[in-house]
Nucleic acid binder design. Structure first.
Lengths: 222, 222
DNA sequence: GGCGTTGGGTGACAATATCACTGAAGGGTC
DNA sequence: GACCCTTCAGTGATATTGTCACCCAACGCC
């Protein structure tokens, strides 16, 4: 029991809730484990609850009519899937899809409990509102990048973000194309150029960052 | 007094509120009038309240570092500015800006009142959540269009949307470029092509739709 | 080894963006 | 009216990005 309650403390904004509310939250929620590569929500998988990530990472992406994908943002441990969840709670049709990138442990809060918490706790409302706001600014950023950003600059930035743990990166050109919403050939050419300039080394399915500082310099030249 | 209360009935989702809540809402809010062309929120104009539009239209757009603009969505009468307002309430830095396109009458609900309503009324929460969800799907649509859409198709669709009242459209190429987040020259060329194909007629600052059905046909060929 | 699948390279071409101009249209002013 | 100034639109040249149609190499599997 005491063990179960611990997860709340990991969430900025939930840890300050009154004890009674915390108890309510713990009582009504369920911890779940999901293996990597699972679609946790999306067209065809509509959950009826809000997810709080304890461990792991969820990638949220959108597939266009033409079949091409673009990554919108990622939900990390300590964050919640408020945004797409809202679309579902409001019964709005939506086209985004959430996929676990790692094994994920999450807390599922049913709609009813979510609603009672919204009613009863100012702190909880602030938590949700703030989470929303952050996602929205993420989306604004995506729009800005896609509309006005240069591909090489965006790719440089994404390489750095994806290789936060070490200089090795196990990813295909196609996956990188999906990250930026472009075509594989474009990624291939830009990476080839990066290689010629000594920024990276490549082999099938793997990229090694050789010169982070120069990659960062390019990424900054937005 | 009774007159003041009428505005609530115009909002789907607010009209079903209990009378006590309605009275509270009316008591705590203020009706305001804003002339066309005013920045109602944005960097440099941070209001501390949520706006409900009674009349008129607000255009929400974003300016990139490079100085280019893109229109994100419009808030029409009967809707509220939930999205960007949330960013402000959550004290998130944001880059979007709201400009009145017509004279606007709006109801301003201060943060405190908003919060009390969120706490006290399930209907109000649903209203806000639904409004959020709709905006978010709008943003998803923008991302999809910008990333994967063709310029001529997007422009055709936008011309139809902007000319909802009549076939005359008083707008410059630059304004249309801002609508789609592209460059004026691109719009000039596409419009020139539309003109050659007999879709439209042009003169300085004015566009006349000549063949809505063929424009619509192009717009549909997403 | 043979074979199928996936990942990656490349040339040709199309679409869009950028740059650097040009001139035309309209609104003032005298 | 003529003159000037600002805004709006047209255009060629060039760069960047996207699309299409391939090719070949690497890897897993039998």
């Amino acid at each position: 029991m005491a063990d179960n309650r611990v997860w709340i403390e990991r969430f900025h904004g939930l840890s300050t809730l009154p004890d009674a509310v915390k108890a309510q939250l713990v009582a009504e929620s369920a911890v779940m484990k999901v293996p990597a590569g699972t679609a946790v929500f999306g067209p065809g998988a509509v959950p009826d609850n809000l997810l709080f990530l304890l461990n792991g990472r969820v990638r949220v992406q959108q597939t266009s009519e033409s079949g091409r994908d673009i990554v919108l943002y990622r939900v990390e441990a300590g964050e919640s899937c408020v945004l797409t969840t809202a679309c579902m709670l409001a019964h709005e049709p939506y086209s985004a899809e959430g996929v676990t990138e790692t094994d994920v442990t999450a807390v599922a809060i049913p709609r009813g409990a979510f609603d009672r918490l919204m009613a009863s706790s100012q702190d909880f409302r602030d938590f949700v509102l703030t989470a929303y706001a952050r996602r929205i600014t993420d989306l604004f950023r995506v729009i800005d990048d896609v509309a006005f950003g240069r591909i090489d600059v965006r790719l440089a930035g994404r390489l750095l973000a994806l290789a936060s743990d070490g200089d090795e990166l196990a990813t295909t050109h196609q996956q990188l194309a999906t990250e930026l919403g472009t075509a594989r050939e474009v990624i291939s050419r830009v990476l080839h150029d990066f290689q010629k300039r000594g920024f990276i080394a490549q082999s099938r399915g793997r990229i090694t960052l050789l010169d982070r500082s120069r990659i960062a310099q390019l990424a900054e030249s937005a």
